[in-house]
Amino acid sequence: MSETWMIFGGWVAAGLTLFLFSFLYKDNPFFKATEHLYLGAGMGWVFQTVLYQTWIPKVWEPLRAGDFYVLIPTVLGLSLVTQFFPRISWVSRYGFTFIMGYGSGLVIPLTLSTDFLKQIGGTISPFLVSEVSRATFWPLLNGAIVAAGFVCVLVYFFFSVEHKGAIKKASTVGIYFLMLYFGAAFGNTVMGRFSLLYGRFDDLYKYSGAKYFYATHVILAALVLYFVISHFTSRKKEAEEEAA
């Protein structure tokens, strides 16, 4: 890639990042333009992914090779498009019925496997120690706390029983366990988001260099200028409207 294109790319990247961040102040035309550009680019990306990773290798190439069985799922898939034509939109129900059917067929055994068996096996597994002794006391205690917390959380999710007495106490303990987990998950995800933010700041810093003709600084200054002008012009308009 030539130097000119690199600089141009830097300006585009810095500009789009700052335009999106400008939403933190207030809605503005730069944010709107970037939002629509992002939407269009996202759809374009999805379209080419579907075209090159689904249509060509899974429909077009098998058909050219003489495998006409792929026509069955293809026709079922295309039947969904009939939704746009009210007179024949009933055809789409065949496709939907198939999707719902295979979806349920896939999910039910998987749910049984993960929600029941893996969960029970995982909770019991800390108790599978070679012997009960002083050395295994702490792992066993840890396993017992996890098992007790697990049972209490399940009690909280009992819907057909009124939560009072012992059930209420157990469900309250369950809520504490849930909140502990959510707190940890919150911290963990926020850390992840910060690393993404650092990535954007790192790029903005990179594009603020002389090599990119101070792209970040120039665009940021232009944005600030726009907001200052727009602030005064909107105030003037409001005053005129009030006077009228």
């Binding site: 929600d115 029941f116 969960q119 029970i120 909770t123 019991i124 108790f127 599978l128 120690v129 070679s130 012997e131 009960v132 066993l140 396993g143 017992a144 098992a147 697990f150 049972v151 399940l154 009690v155 999710f157 009992f158 819907f159 057909s160 029983v161």
Partner: peptide, 25 residues
């Protein structure tokens, strides 16, 4: 109600399973 039965099954399995594993060890 079926979901609640499922949860009750999981709870009973965890409690009895853990107790049995400890006893067997």
């Amino acid at each position: 109600k079926v979901q609640d039965f499922g949860k009750a099954f999981v709870m009973v399995s965890v409690i009895t399973g853990s107790a049995l594993v400890m006893l067997a060890t």
